[in-house]
């Protein structure tokens, strides 16, 4: 009897819970999980005759046997790692400067200034770099004007340019977590480090870096993910020689209409991206929910 009573008392709460659960479950299943499963399903189909498909791994085998495919993949992954490291190295001093060396209004102002470029569409930012770097662009003309070079120089369509664009578009995702974490580091810890006889470097290495570690990890994970999945920057700044993996996916789907191969690439990109995120979290012993929010 007692159990029935509690069940009755719980019914309205359960109904409310159900009403709140339905939309998110529908959204999650239909728009996030089901599409990924469909992609996995399609990637495992191989063409045996026109319009006839069977299950098999030929799309994944094609990836490993065709040097262009896995070279592009490897290149994308390595360049993303380099871009992540460069972003960290460039962002750290700025975050430190804003969080620890500035006071009052200058601090808030510079922090907001860091955010402004990221309220501008990625397309516009990349276009800006194209104007700066092209043969008839601002930098080339300037170098000729001051007499450093004789003729126009094309800065676009090199790996260095792609790297520059990638680092630029990732900066926010490193500067923001770093600055807010460094801001929470109490000055007295640094002072104590000096009092105990530390020098600039040892204080930095034993006090500042350990404190900033969670932000470094989450910043690196987010930057790596975004770089790996970037499409616009490599295409526009790298031109035909960009060889970026997302471009390969686009080509398979839209240009060649080979959805099976494209899906296999998609599954591979998603796997490596998830793997790196997972590794990063494991190595730093952080939880996914915390890093993402």
């Amino acid at each position: 009897m007692k159990t029935i009573g509690t069940a009755n008392a719980r019914t309205p709460i359960k109904l409310g819970l159900l009403l709140l659960l339905c939309p998110i479950l529908l959204w999650l299943f239909l728009l996030v999980i089901l599409p990924q499963l469909t992609m996995l399903n399609i990637s495992l189909q191989e063409r045996v005759a026109p319009r006839i498909y069977e299950y098999g791994f030929s799309n994944f085998i094609a990836f490993f046997t065709e040097p262009l495919y896995w070279n592009t993949f490897l290149r994308t992954a390595i360049m993303s790692i380099i871009a992540t490291i460069l972003t960290l190295i460039i962002a750290f001093p700025i975050s430190y400067y804003i969080a620890k060396m500035l006071r009052g209004r200058a601090k808030g102002l510079l922090f907001v200034l860091c955010l402004i470029p990221f309220w501008v569409s990625e397309l516009v930012r990349t276009y800006g770099w194209m104007i700066l770097l092209r043969e008839s662009g601002v930098i080339s003309t300037f170098l000729q004007y001051i007499g450093l070079v004789d003729g126009p120089i094309e800065f676009l369509y090199t790996d260095a340019t792609i790297m520059l664009g990638l680092v630029y578009s990732s900066m926010l995702f490193m500067v923001v977590p770093l600055t807010s974490t460094l801001d929470s580091l109490d000055d007295s810890y640094i002072e104590a480090g000096y009092d105990l006889g530390g020098n600039g470097f040892s204080v930095f290495w034993h006090i500042v870096v350990p404190h900033a570690k969670p932000a470094i990890v989450s910043g690196c994970i987010v930057v790596f993910m975004l770089t790996l999945g970037n499409y616009l920057t490599p295409i526009l700044l790298g031109g035909k020689s960009s060889l970026w993996f997302t471009e390969q996916i686009f080509t398979q789907f839209i240009t060649r209409f080979n959805w099976q191969q494209g899906s296999a690439f998609g599954v591979l990109l998603l796997s490596i991206s998830s793997l790196i995120v997972w590794l990063g979290l494991k190595l730093s012993r952080q939880s996914f929910s915390k890093v993402m929010s």
């Binding site: 402004i116 470029p117 501008v120 276009y127 800006g128 104007i131």
Partner: peptide, 8 residues
Amino acid sequence: LMAPLVVV
């Protein structure tokens, strides 16, 4: 940070 925005 600002150069590309300014030239645009």
